[in-house]
């Protein structure tokens, strides 16, 4: 009996050596542990033995059974591992091949710049307000202290639509007027108004008959030019970097008094002088000033009680400076090969 057990042990071990498939293993398992398997048969012989022999033989039979199971399990695991490894090996890919092109939509350069400026202003408590592009002469000019026949109207050659009373707005300032007029309790105002504007300019590298402005208006008690300067400083640094400086030059707009033009130190040469700033170290960015008392009065505010500042700039000009665009018409060709597909500012 004992010999038989030993023989099985040797045979089993031998049969599990080498490369065998999972099916082979199943067969081997049946051959030894199945209903008619060699080990099962041995245990069937148990009933014919004496009690003493039963005891002894039973023990070794259990041993071989445990032995056989663990040996087969072990082999099973190693076969599975080999199969998995083979599978993984087969599944190896060339990670250098191109990925699926997932298109990234981009804003237009102008809209992209507007949105990043809006982000800044929203965080400073300014509302973003828009207004109609087909506008009344009253809002575009008259209430802004530009009566009919005012020479300053020449600077804004306007597209008229009907009887010189309706026009395509030549500036975004009418949005300021509309906001002031509709603010019934004449409380403080903090807005920016970005939008499309139109002037009778021939399209060339620096002009387009349609362009984009962003204006800001702040009305409250005790607002001064120093508040304006501080605010414009923030915009300049946001757009052109922390080292950017701002300066004011006296200027004229019918709707502000005092009026200033604001320059920023040239971002390209840090103010040393280069072709971009025409060797002056400064770049004119926009116009600003303290809201003209007549404009305040026209819109129901009392200039003896409140004051306010307003500023405005052309987005195309800003985008040209910031992105190095040399022809303003570029913004309107919509060449999809140009894709400012990245987070800005």
């Amino acid at each position: 009996m004992k010999e038989k057990v030993e023989k099985i042990k040797v045979e089993l071990k031998a049969s599990l050596e080498g490369n065998i498939s999972i099916q082979d293993l199943a067969n081997i398992k049946a051959e030894y542990l199945g209903k008619k398997g060699k080990i099962t048969e041995l245990s069937n012989q148990l009933k014919d033995l004496s009690n003493e022999e039963k005891k002894e033989f039973g023990k070794s039979l259990n041993e071989i059974k445990t032995y056989a199971i663990s040996l087969i399990d072990e082999k099973s695991k190693s076969i599975e591992e080999a199969i998995l490894n083979e599978k993984l090996e087969k599944e190896k890919i060339d990670i250098s091949l191109p990925g699926v092109t997932v298109k990234n939509g981009a804003p237009s350069m102008i809209e992209g710049l507007i949105e990043s400026l809006e982000e800044l202003f929203l965080s400073m408590g300014y509302d973003v307000v828009e207004g109609p592009e087909v506008e009344k002469d009253l809002y575009n000019f008259e209430l802004l202290n530009l009566p009919k026949g005012h020479p300053a109207r020449d600077a804004q050659d306007t597209f008229y639509i009907k009887d010189e009373e309706i026009l395509l707005r030549s500036q975004t300032s009418p949005v300021q007027i509309r906001t002031m007029l509709s603010n019934e309790d004449k409380s403080s105002i903090r807005i920016i108004c970005p939008g499309k504007t139109y002037r009778r300019d021939d399209d060339d590298a620096t002009h387009t008959h349609q362009f984009t402005q962003m204006e800001g208006l702040l009305i409250d008690k005790g607002i001064s030019l120093a508040d304006l300067k501080g605010t414009l400083d923030i915009i300049a640094k946001y757009l052109f970097g922390e080292k950017t400086e701002t300066r004011f030059r006296s200027s004229f707009y019918p709707f502000t008094e005092p009026s200033v033009e604001f320059d920023v130190s040239c971002h390209a040469c840090s103010g040393k002088g280069c072709p971009i700033c025409k060797h002056t170290g400064w770049i004119t960015v926009g116009g600003a000033g303290m809201v003209h008392p007549k404009v305040l009065t026209n819109c129901g505010y009392n200039p003896d009680i409140v004051s306010g500042f307003a500023f405005g700039f052309g987005i195309e000009r800003l985008a040209m400076l910031k992105y190095g665009v040399t022809d303003a018409r570029t913004f309107y060709t919509n060449d999809l090969r140009v894709n400012p597909d990245r987070r800005e500012v």
């Binding site: 403080s188 120093a226 508040d227 300067k229 501080g230 701002t246 300066r247 030059r249």
Partner: peptide, 11 residues
């Protein structure tokens, strides 16, 4: 105007 020191409105 170069003597104006920028500040932010108190709002």
């Amino acid at each position: 105007y170069d003597k104006i020191v920028g500040k932010l409105p108190k709002l």
